[in-house]
Design a protein around this nucleic acid. Structure first.
Lengths: 183, 183
DNA sequence: TGTGACATGTAATATGTTACATGATTGA
DNA sequence: TCAATCATGTAACATATTACATGTCACA
């Protein structure tokens, strides 16, 4: 069961009845750009879920576009619950990915000028991302869903931790005691 | 250019000359389980890179296994540099993924008992992950590569932020009108 | 001498990406 | 009426996963 599948089931549970397009838009509104939320991923996925009996679809008769309103079945809810509870496994908890940190591991192979570019530019990008995470939090502030707010708050905390960390690296960079790496 | 490709080029740059197997093992040693580091991903990838002229391979004549020692070409180094500098783009900085947080957005759809299970179990998983991130940091402490140390430190900071955040959620959970479990 | 790590690779499968293609609906 | 948004979908392609398959090397 893929991450995207779990997320899509979750969005559907919160918005049903809604269209595949609506799910796509909800995914796109997230500050994270981890999924492209492309039509080529969403429509085939939803059709798979429907075929597997996790999702019900009814064509909206009053809409000539063939608008399909989707809802979760009982099996779909059970599957979503199963996905949720997998958060307790260490494998899921450790399947994080941070593309900036992945790159930072190899800073030692760059020359001093590139290192500066890297740190300055990625710090700016991280600050910009933090800003969008904060905006996302504001949107959820008056929502009745305090859990979604707390989840978004976690995103802000993590974004703050990333900015702080990159500032630490910058401080280290501007410290002259570090000799250049030999190549 | 995929994340895995960039990471593999980076590992190779730091360990060359080394085998594809060595790169796999280096990937596996990371506390993050984001990549499975399976043979089915690494060997085809390295062969693609070789074909593209980013990697050079020389068969070790003294080894009957057909051990191939890999090195980066100039084009490979340039490609790696390009990947590194892409950390400055907001798209890359925002392409983070946290499977526990993804799930936390949908806590509102769970019943109280499942919510408690979710929070208690994922807190334990996050603490366990934090521990492995700390161990990874210890390994890098006496390394001459201070940058890799700083990168791993970022991993620890983020893991700490995730634990702290889940504790906040737990506090919110037990503050609620829901009667507390026996403890 | 035997076991576990080293070493390379493929096959079937699943899933995601980009780009393309089409048309309806809504509101200024 | 016209443009932006809503809405569904496919095609070619790239890439990762799991499971399988084979054999060598180092060392106790």
């Amino acid at each position: 069961m893929s991450e995207l599948e779990g997320v899509v089931l979750g969005i559907l549970q919160g918005k049903q009845p809604c269209t595949a397009y609506g799910i796509r838009m909800a995914l796109q509104d997230s500050p994270s750009s981890f999924w492209s939320a492309s039509a080529g991923a969403i429509y085939p996925l939803l059709n798979r879920l429907e075929k597997a009996g996790l999702v019900d679809a009814s064509v909206d008769a009053g809409d000539a576009r063939g608008r399909r309103l989707l809802t979760l079945t009982a099996a779909g809810r059970a599957r979503h619950r199963q996905w949720m509870l997998s958060a307790g496994s260490v494998e899921v908890a450790s399947a994080v990915s941070d593309p900036v940190r992945s790159r930072a591991f190899f800073l030692g192979a760059m020359d001093a000028a590139d290192r500066r570019t890297f740190v300055d530019d990625s710090l700016q990008a991280l600050e910009s991302f933090l800003e969008s995470a904060r905006q996302d939090l504001v949107i959820r502030t008056d929502s009745e869903d305090s859990w979604a707010y707390l989840a978004a708050l976690g995103g802000v905390h993590q974004a703050e931790a990333r900015v702080k960390w990159m500032r630490e690296i910058r401080d280290h960079l501007y410290d002259d005691s570090v000799p250049p790496v030999d190549r």
